[in-house]
Write a protein that binds this DNA or RNA. Sequence first.
DNA 1: TTGGCCTGCTGACTCGATTCAGCAACGCAC
DNA 2: GTGCGTTGCTGAATCGAGTCAGCAGGCCAA
Lengths: 342, 342
Amino acid sequence: MVRGARKPRLADVAARAGVSRTTASYILNGRSDEMRISAEAVARVRAAVVDLGYRPNRTARSLRTAQTRTVGLISDNVASGHFASRMLTGASAAAREADHFLLIGETDGDPLVERLLAEQMLDQGVDGIVYATLRHREVVVPPSLLQARVVLLNCVDPASGLPAVVPDEHGGGRAAADLAARAAGPVVVVGDEREQGTHAGTMRLAGLEERLDELGRAVDDVVRCDWTVPAARSALACWWSGGGPAGSLVCMNDRVAMGAYQALDGLDASIPADVAVVSFDGSELASWLTPTLTTVGLPFADLGEAAVRTLLDPDARGSGTQRLAMPVVHGGSVPTVARVTP
Amino acid sequence: MVRGARKPRLADVAARAGVSRTTASYILNGRSDEMRISAEAVARVRAAVVDLGYRPNRTARSLRTAQTRTVGLISDNVASGHFASRMLTGASAAAREADHFLLIGETDGDPLVERLLAEQMLDQGVDGIVYATLRHREVVVPPSLLQARVVLLNCVDPASGLPAVVPDEHGGGRAAADLAARAAGPVVVVGDEREQGTHAGTMRLAGLEERLDELGRAVDDVVRCDWTVPAARSALACWWSGGGPAGSLVCMNDRVAMGAYQALDGLDASIPADVAVVSFDGSELASWLTPTLTTVGLPFADLGEAAVRTLLDPDARGSGTQRLAMPVVHGGSVPTVARVTP
DNA sequence: TTGGCCTGCTGACTCGATTCAGCAACGCAC
DNA sequence: GTGCGTTGCTGAATCGAGTCAGCAGGCCAA
């Protein structure tokens, strides 16, 4: 590129190659065969592009084609969520793969901000919008969104029938059952399955019960508490005040499991010999505990990726709800081999 | 807006108001006084905008003005970092405040991807680029970036002299000193201050030593280990095998502190009565420990906000490096009142 | 009457691409 | 030599705004 000169335009390329703008445009858009451009012209244009360091102006192209090659992601709190922010990683990677960029905006749950953000993204001309939530739950998307293509991420909107990508909580519950069943003794769920702000709990519990039943086992008790460290700690401490802990604990998330570890700490019971612990999330926290926690992971990066893929896939219009498998992250909190069940 | 009609353009507004496109444009851009447009014309145009539901086409405007009202954020791993992802929250909030959108891209540290991403963002016509890193460290920004306005976030590039926004690690170290000095006995630093991938450690240590010196105290020992839970746990367990723990621990981050808690667990020493623990990060983890951890926080959201503000502030060209204060997050791991120093 | 100034507006060009419709030049069949 | 088809290209319109230069028309002073 010539020093000091302004950025070259398509017209400059065309002039240098001795062809019209039209011809140059066809060549750069891969339509040279269709338009029967001679090989010589193609070569001259390509050379000119290199010589001038030409890069097409995306804005001008967008004006003409009404496509901006950007996708928006509107969320309540995803970037703030410690672990859920990987949805952004996945989404942005998938966008880049499709030569798009990801535009992000957070609403903090404020419906007004949500509406504003949606409108501004539409003004900006995004090619589609991913509507994401920190917790897996049901939502009602703002009507203004519906002018664009929308894919839901980590949430569903039953009324709208919009395509959605969510973790397979039910399958995750089944996986947890298999892990919990490795230990003998009662299976105890820790954490209120109706935790507000999500319905992951009910689905996990349903899967857990289904699979335990198949194994000839059952959920023997549920210790209801918020999904936080201190709530789980005190709930369990209180619950065990009767007899000593035994069997296996299925914790609704890794923080609850951490609370369980703390509650076990004072007692004379070791993990996993006396008590097995399984949980959900697959966050880094699981690897910080001793012994490391066996946890059924939320595939956040994959969720983000799948959502953007679905959004940009022209064939995926009414593709319903995709449930992505929750992979087990193996730790040391369950016995490595299943005990033989009587 | 009329049903089924295509989106109204400025020309439609002008026609309905009985003025020229030029006049309508001046009015909508707040230049009606300067251009001496009559109050009646202004009113008619505003009414037409409402009637038609007119929203300006940002792409067309961008083409003309060469401003896209978007800013890019290129990072190595910020969205994946559990806690650092709040930089995105702050950055996106600041962008929105200035009527801009945030475009994100992650490189995973790959210089090739970095270059590509930078070029694509420039093609996209971003009004500026924030270059961010997960860890606070020195970087060399890719030369292709320098075509745009750039602000560094959580890193510095001494050679380029680019404006940067970073946490005030030195000041944070001083704050930690005040907290550690509340307990009598030796002050022990936990975590290698030369942790690879960041130079936060050396700055924290320098601030710590400076302030301790002012208080007539000193760093009595440094237990060098990686900034991870298991490394800190085993390093401390080993270190204490001589005598019992006492004094105060200054942990290089919250995970190290968690390791310290675990190491203390078997021993007969309580926090903060026997050992005070201070750390750096201010992550949620601090609130999950028992007792809750007193930690000098990284103001990630503020950092992100300040970076975008600086980027968009026309007066802030060579504004040097902004060091944002690290706020103390008070927990229960240090004595509440300072002991009288002899 | 003429010239100059103010008020209130507009015509036409511009940003940088995409794309439809059409046009010369040539060969070939009749 | 006329008509037709193919090859290889191009002119000009278009997307939807922003903006410079200028133009009527009225008023006032000389």
